[in-house]
Write a protein that binds this DNA or RNA. Structure first.
Lengths: 266, 266
DNA sequence: TTGCAGCATTGATTTAAATCAATGCCCGTG
DNA sequence: CACGGGCATTGATTTAAATCAATGCTGCAA
């Protein structure tokens, strides 16, 4: 019955994951008082956006001794649902999808996580979704025990986690509206607009979008089939709203109108 | 186009909201050392489940001077989206729906909150949904400033809020799977099973379910139309899984099978 | 270079859920 | 007690998206 909704494997697509360099101590987040301390974290490009942003130099120094970075190849799992949740993860580069499966293989993606985002939703000590790399991805693995330690000592970190949880709740409500009430056209438009807002710093009317994931991932994120996603993108193209140089690179030509469509306003 | 999806008003249904009595100091949660202190909180029936559970007698005493309880009539708002978020709320009795609207009136409910649940999701100081009483409901209004004060002093309270946030995230992911990938039959079955798990302490095979909300609310929660919800309930009735004494009271006759249906296993 | 595998697109057909429409039921009210 | 309004249910019809099916494209490997 749901054959075409079966879980699909990752598109092992090149997504330009740049390697995280430990040997480039250009700390532009906070001046290291003692550059001899320069730890992996010191040169971390996502530190300003990540939960560890609030640590001072000494704390960061200890932090960096306890975390470690992992390269997760496209399609491989960072963790799986029901595994014991011992770590949190910050995405350093690349992109991760959070997936939940039904017994017969139907799949729903609940989020894509990219640079600076925090992963590791758990309940009673177990992860609640599969977290899989969409493309080659680097994550920073943070033992939960370490987090707990800092959470008490470093209010900024607890606050940061709380804020991220609130944002995530907000995103999920937003996504529930999409899944439950939007048309395919509105779903795809929302997806594209959200990507622009997440990645494109300059909110011009014309914006380039890189899709690290394949159509199957988009479909499972939006609660559609691959075919409907494809047809809808073609439709947006025919409406003159989109250029499609190739399946993984889109250019939005009129993001204002796309935004209106996303909200069901036309 | 979406006329039949327009936001529907509350069913002003009687839901047996029992009035919260201040004058009955039967503190079965924690023995009040000094019964002269007996505050409204002392007799609160939901305290063991609520965020204030971790307060000691003195803290609770101060707490009770700063909170106040409000009766919200069926259909009225506890708060509205985009209002300044100055308070959190604990549901004392009754039930609240969280609603998000699209410009043209389409509506998605993201949660029903009942006794002991915490309300007041906000982002950057503003509520993110409409919170409306499904039936006559009593809420305990807690100034956010008070929460912040206790959050620093009373780790248990911060932990309790964090736990509730995690649970909420978990529920929303669960709901995303439902909205994006389940059939109407599975959606309704899931809704019923979740209600049993939430309200029915004894997990017998036969369980009574009270629906405080009308079919419109159920439809907007499940991403369906009223008609489909109604037909699906009839279908479950015809399958021998359900008795429907009246629209607001259902009896599940085989919850094990209902559970299997909910997970798409048959 | 050719062939193949995996995606993506496009087209035809089916089907399930939305929409449109009518009726019934229950409760509160005059 | 009769009436009216708001829900809920049920039936008929439409329609949009899933499904089924075929073809095309791209990049990798033999």
């Amino acid at each position: 019955m749901f054959d075409s909704l079966k879980a699909r494997d990752a598109a092992p697509t090149e997504c330009g994951a740049q390697i995280f360099r430990f040997d480039r101590p250009e700390n532009n987040i906070r001046t290291a008082r003692n550059s001899a301390l320069a730890s992996p974290c010191a040169s971390c490009k996502v530190r300003s956006k990540a939960v560890c942003a609030g640590l001072n130099d000494e704390e960061m120094e200890e932090f960096s001794r306890n975390i470690h970075t992992r390269l997760v190849k496209a399609g491989k799992a960072v963790y799986r649902e029901s595994e014991a949740a011992d770590n949190l993860f910050t995405v350093v580069s690349g992109e991760v999808r959070l997936a939940n499966l039904l017994g017969d293989g139907r799949r729903q993606l609940t989020a894509f996580k990219s640079a600076g985002d925090l992963l590791g939703e758990n309940k009673k000590g177990f992860y609640q979704s599969d977290a899989e790399a969409v493309c080659d991805t680097i994550v920073c693995q943070i033992p939960l025990s370490l987090m707990e330690k800092y959470s008490n000592d470093v209010p900024a970190m607890y606050a940061s986690i709380a804020t991220k949880a609130q944002e995530e709740l907000c995103e999920l409500r937003h996504h529930a509206v999409l899944l439950g009430r939007k048309t395919p056209l509105e779903k795809v438009a929302t997806f594209l607009v959200d990507r622009i807002d997440k990645f494109d710093s300059k909110p011009e009317n014309q914006a380039a979008i890189e899709l690290t994931m394949g159509r199957g991932d988009v479909a499972d994120f939006l609660g559609l089939t691959i075919e409907t996603v494809s047809r809808t993108i073609t439709k947006l193209k025919n409406m003159g709203l989109l250029l499609v140089p190739n399946p993984h690179h889109l250019v939005v030509r009129n993001s204002a109108r796309l935004r209106r469509i996303a909200e069901g306003e036309e």
